[in-house]
Amino acid sequence: MSNQSLATSPEEQRALERFYFHEARLLDNRQYQQWLSLVSEQISYLMPSRVNVQVDNRARGNEDMISVERELEDQESMGCPIREETYIHLMVRVERAYKINSWSENPPARTRRIVGNIELMAREGDSFSVLSNFHLYYARPGNEDVIYSGQRRDTLLSQEEGFHIGRREVVMDYANIAMPTLGLLF
């Protein structure tokens, strides 16, 4: 992927924004079943683990030395990503939210997602590689309020009824994980 985003028409950029803002509103309104209909049944939903890596002396002076990628234990690594989920996992999470005994969501968290920095990085047929950033404010009775911050690296599939999420990798910005759960729908 080139480091430059693609030049998009205002209509195309607006279509991407419209999708992401709709998605964020569904999640904040706890309409997870509707959200699931935006997800491809072949989805990979990934969250790499983020580690404190040893500085490689030979890389000093280069951007590589402190690259974000070096900090990620992702799906390709022999480390242990935090999430490597399929449609089944997401379905379980969504169904669980509407059970009366899903205690970590009872009462449910009040969340607000702000999604921005939406960049179309590549386009191949119906498949779009899109980066976006998010801040997610999370407040739940009995817990301290927290802010989740991260980047999403998506593959969106353009279909007749609109975009579907074909792949999502969520890169969280944490040092120690000081949030009640990383199991939310980001």
Binding site: M47, C80, P81, I82, R83, E84, E85, H89, V92, R93, R96, S102, W103, S104, I177, M179, P180, T181, L182, G183
Partner: peptide, 16 residues
Amino acid sequence: SSFFGPAGILEQEDAE
């Protein structure tokens, strides 16, 4: 990782 760890579907209840 599906059920345990910081995003685990079960462990989120335990942490709670």
